[in-house]
Amino acid sequence: MMSTTPLIETHDLAVRYPNGALALHHVSFEIKSPSFMAIIGPNGSGKSTLVKTALGLIKPSRGTIKVMGYDSQKKSGKIRKLVRYVPQRDSIDHTVPVKVKDIVLMGRLLKKLPPRFATSKDIAAAKDALQQVNMEELWERPFPELSGGQRQRVLVARALAGEGSILVLDEPLAGTDVESQDLIVAALGRYHKENDVSIIMITHDLNPIHTLVEDVLLLKNTVIGLGEPCSIMDPELIKKVYGPTARIVEHSGHRYCMTHDSGIDRHD
């Protein structure tokens, strides 16, 4: 696609947390479209805040951020038509007895107007998406009964089932086991390759996806680095973000980043 509109474009962006502390400052960068983009950085580095600001969920205290040329404040409606969003798993309520199918269909029905009836096409898309993360048998299962990794897979399926050229995923690998992680990463990689969509993924750790990712944004309340995975995997940069104990390890052709903070997987 010969698109010249950048996926994300920020100018001197500054955003505060609800408690008033500065989450992001002096953030200016541009990412071409389409891209498979990873936003990495330690806890509290402003990754989620950046994404939420891009979707118009948080108001910046200075500067602007545009998604596909649309300003996140003035044109958030246009942006949200394009976006499919997977929030952090913990922000999903577990007391409502919704079924897996309800969650996945949500990805499609949210883009419709009330009464949001599910057509056979919607159901087929939802089933297909569940199949991609190997969860099609749990169609009728109550969502709150699933394990953490299974919930995460269902949420990724919700994004895959929907329509819209941008997938935004906030820590989709957090608290998942190796199997769920592999399934999610494979499904996203395949989806990005086969469809003309951009993927923006927040992650603690680049390792599981570093072969798929095209652009990496390294954040620690401001932009520390932006580039291809290999250039970001630089010992000096990583130390700057994750502290002096972080190391890069070369192992069978891949570079791995070792930190106290992240690690390839956090088992809950």
Binding site: L55, L57, K81, Y85, P87, V96, V98, P115
Partner: peptide, 22 residues
């Protein structure tokens, strides 16, 4: 009756619903 889906969505995932344009 009219908005039970929306009420469920708000209860389950308010932020995600907003981000999807609802």
């Amino acid at each position: 009756l009219m908005f039970n889906k929306e009420f469920v969505y708000v209860s389950v995932d308010m932020e995600g619903s907003t981000a999807h344009g609802m």
